[in-house]
Design a protein around this nucleic acid. Structure first.
Lengths: 160, 160
DNA sequence: CATCATTATTATAGCACATAACATTTTTCA
DNA sequence: TGAAAAATGTTATGTGCTATAATAATGATG
């Protein structure tokens, strides 16, 4: 990829780009690496016609049958309006249902259909393979350290 | 969509949401924590009227005077079309200039103005404070491990 | 009962990112 | 040398994730 052999063009061109300052920031490492993960996850989910958010929502609904949208929004840490289109999509594909809650006519109880559970199972397996591939050169200690460290960050949401 | 309500309330509501499976994925930790970082970075850069991408571009141009847009695109790992609007914005604010390259009339040599360098300095200081605050409870070893681990991921781009 | 809070929704916008198609210019090489 | 290929920047367009404001319907509270 590295194209060498430049003619002499100084002052108005740069032989090698320095990005040392940028990479002194932890956040930049997070951004660049997450981009790679997110792109590969999108490829992984494409055969299932799921996106990152619809996959996340489906998985949570499968594991928490009867949950309400506000609970799902909290679990995913997104605003409720964004969830509506996600739920709409999953419902229109008949992967989940919006059932009425007996004592609260405002809320819906979200449940996965059989097709939803089956698709979720397959998607989870694919995502596990994607993670195994992507993080294969992390040893167990590294993985634990990273997860613990990242957990410290996303648990501070709101306090910063 | 509205189906018959279940008699048992447990079936249509969830006391506590389980997200154990989700958090068994490294990628989900990355996503959640990066969201927190990105949101705080945006707040940090707002007084300078910079966004994440314009800040990144400005910093790289300041540190690599004379670089071309294609070099900047490679350094930032974004496609060239996305860079045009970023460069336009920085140029219209007179933080950078697009100078002609003598031997190549296709390319522009990007350089920061004095105002651009000054704004960049201030922004970098603010971002350093933002990082110090956000990652204050990581010890040095954790930080090194995380940076090294994330580096392993974003250097695999294209090979996965 | 009046007021306030909650739930879901609609409408709208911002931001980061991608691809396709193109004009201009430079490089390559037959 | 001249035609084909590659490089550079640009325009147009679309997708995906996220946020805020405003609203209707319902439930909770005092």
């Amino acid at each position: 990829m590295a194209k060498v052999a430049k003619t002499l063009k100084e002052k108005t061109d740069v032989a090698q780009v320095s990005d040392a300052t940028l990479y002194s920031f932890v956040g930049y490492h997070m951004k660049r690496s997450f981009n790679v993960v997110q792109a590969d996850l999108a490829r992984t989910l494409r055969p299932f016609k799921l996106r990152m958010t619809t996959y996340t929502a489906l998985l949570l609904i499968v594991e928490n049958p009867g949950m309400r949208q506000v609970q799902l929004a909290n679990a995913m840490d997104v605003e409720r309006p964004n969830l509506v289109v996600i739920i709409d999509e999953l419902e229109s594909r008949e992967l989940i249902t919006r059932d009425q809650v007996p004592n609260d006519r405002r809320a819906y109880a979200l449940k996965a259909t059989l097709a939803g559970r089956r698709l979720c199972d397959k998607a989870v397996k694919a995502v596990k393979m994607h993670e195994n591939k992507l993080f294969s050169d992390w040893d167990e200690e590294t993985k634990e350290t990273v997860i613990r460290a990242l957990g410290l960050i996303h648990r501070r949401k709101g306090e910063v």
